[in-house]
């Protein structure tokens, strides 16, 4: 595959909906992305089986985050709360997607969140996940589990982050990075902006396969070398280029603590391509 033009575009995007603030912000970005790529959006609400199990315990209770008051929980109440949450999530999805005229569907499933998301992502090109800043230090097991197991690309959207220009892509020559380059090209063309390619190796001129892939894209392309091939180097390079969206291979982030470090250092959206 020498030319990114032949790569299948992003046609189906999965988003996990939980009616939280970060989820809503992620939804808007996902809808905007789907609109530009003419993709279909699938909203998935998972009724967490762990919550239901907890609510069935005889001493189950929750503490309000605002008032610190303790409230008893039971299985019926929990199911009702989850249904209400799902309704809100569906309404938000339809309203947001409707504004942009994006095709969408919504599903409610019950089970363990990671398992259900992975199951739903079988024929999905991209999974969009909202992440709160609190999670930077410690990626939630759900997110971690998805990144480790999915075959799809994953878009991590910190609160307030959007798919912004300039798009910056990390290129290490791996097949995944070639795919990342292709996705980055598509995103840059949507932004009508500049594409920055960060090479993990020191190089004086763009590699032939990269130049070939970007040929005829109409983009202004900047080629830079990362100060180091590790995650610290990626973060530093992305900051230096004021990256609006960072695209990189998932394999670069599989090392323990690598993704946490990257998200802590950057405010922008991160697209992990597998």
């Amino acid at each position: 595959m020498s030319n990114g033009e032949n790569l299948p575009p992003i046609r189906r995007i999965l988003i996990s909906l939980d009616a939280s603030a970060s989820g809503t912000a992620a939804l808007e970005t996902a809808v905007a992305l789907a609109s530009r790529m003419e993709a279909e959006l699938l909203g998935l609400f998972v009724e967490d089986v762990n919550l239901l199990r907890f609510a069935a315990l005889p001493f189950a209770r929750e503490m309000s985050f605002f008032s610190a008051r303790i409230r008893r929980l039971d299985i019926v109440g929990m199911e009702r709360a989850l249904r209400a949450q799902a309704s809100r999530a569906e309404a938000t999805l339809i309203e947001t997607a409707g504004r942009q005229r994006v095709r969408c569907s919504f599903r409610v499933v019950r089970g363990e969140v990671t398992t259900q998301l992975l199951a739903a992502s079988q024929d999905i090109d991209l999974i969009a996940l909202g992440v709160t800043r609190r999670q930077f230090h410690r990626i939630s097991p759900t997110v971690r589990g998805i990144i480790d197991a999915t075959r799809s690309s994953v878009l991590l959207l910190p609160t307030d982050a959007r798919i912004n220009a300039p798009v910056t892509v990390v290129y290490d020559g791996s097949p995944a990075s070639i795919k990342a380059l292709s996705v980055a090209r598509q995103l840059s063309q949507m932004q009508e902006g500049i594409l920055t390619v960060l090479f993990t190796e020191k190089t004086e001129s763009p590699k032939a396969e990269v130049a070939e892939q970007l040929e005829g894209s109409g983009l202004v392309v900047r080629y830079r070398s990362l100060p180091s091939a590790d995650m610290a180097g990626v973060a530093q390079g992305a900051r230096r280029e004021a990256a609006g969206t960072l695209v990189l291979s998932t394999s670069l982030c599989l090392k323990a603590g690598a993704l946490e470090y990257l998200l802590e250092q950057l405010d922008c959206a991160v697209l992990l391509v597998r």
Binding site: N50, L51, F54, A56, A60, M63, F65, M78, Q85
Partner: peptide, 21 residues
């Protein structure tokens, strides 16, 4: 420490899952 639809709670765990009743 788990997030419930309208607050926070502490649930007993075993093998990464909440204990069933």
């Amino acid at each position: 420490m788990i997030r419930t639809p309208s607050g926070m709670a502490f649930a007993p765990m075993r093998k990464g899952e909440v204990l069933s009743p």
